[in-house]
Amino acid sequence: MAKNVDEEAQDVQRKVFKIIVIGDSDVGKTCLTYRFCAGKFPDKTEATIGVDFRERTVDIDGELIKLQLWDTAGQERFRKSMVPHYYRNVHAVVFTYDVTKLASFQGLPMWLEECDQHSLNASVPRILVGNKCDLTNQVQVETNIAQRFADAHSMPLFETSAKEDKECDNVEAIFLTLAHKLKCQKPMMTQDYPKMNRATVLSVDKEVLRTQSEGTCGC
C-alpha cells in the first residue's frame, strides 16, 4: 500500500497533480476526499461552500506524488461562476454521484458538458465514482447502468463508500489508481479495467499493491 510521507522530512522534488472533484450537492465529494486525505470519515458533515482543498503525498513506486484534491460545492450557482477558476491546469477530474440518488447520476451529463466547456485536454484522465454504496437497500443506480455510462464516456467506474471503514481501501484504490495513471500519463480507458464494477474494484487495489511491490508501473 502506498504510504503517507512526512513531507517535512523529505527534501525531494515531487510531482504534483491537481485533481478536481465534482458532482451534485450531497453526493459525498467532501467525505471522499477527506477519507483519502485524513484516513477517516468526518465526524460531522456539512455543505461545502466555495472550494475546499485537501492534499496527500503518496509514494508510488518509490516516487513521491503529491495529490491536490480540490473539493467543490455542488450547488449550481457555485459551479457556474466559482468552479471554472479551478479547472485551470487540472490533471484529472473525479465525477461523483450518489448511488442512492438517481438525480445525481442523471446530472452527470451536465457536469461532463461543463468539463468539456472548460476545454480540458482529452488526455486529462476522468473517473466516475458512485458513492454511498453502503446503503445497499436504497440503491437507485444499478452498477450495470453506471458502467454503461462510464464506458460511453471512456471512464473507469468505481463504486465505493466513503463512510464504511471496510471500504477504506477501496477509496484508497481509486485515488492511487489515478496517481498511477497520472504518473505514467497513458490514456486511461475502461478497457484497462474490463471488469470494473463494484465486485472487482478490489482487484484494482491488488493491482496497485502488486505494481508497487514489483517496483514497476502497471498502467
Partner: peptide, 13 residues
C-alpha cells in the same frame, strides 16, 4: 430540496 440537504448537514453548528 437543496435547503433540506444543507440543513440536514448543519449539525456542526
Amino acid at each position: 430540496r437543496q435547503v433540506i440537504l444543507d440543513v440536514d448537514r448543519s449539525g456542526k453548528r
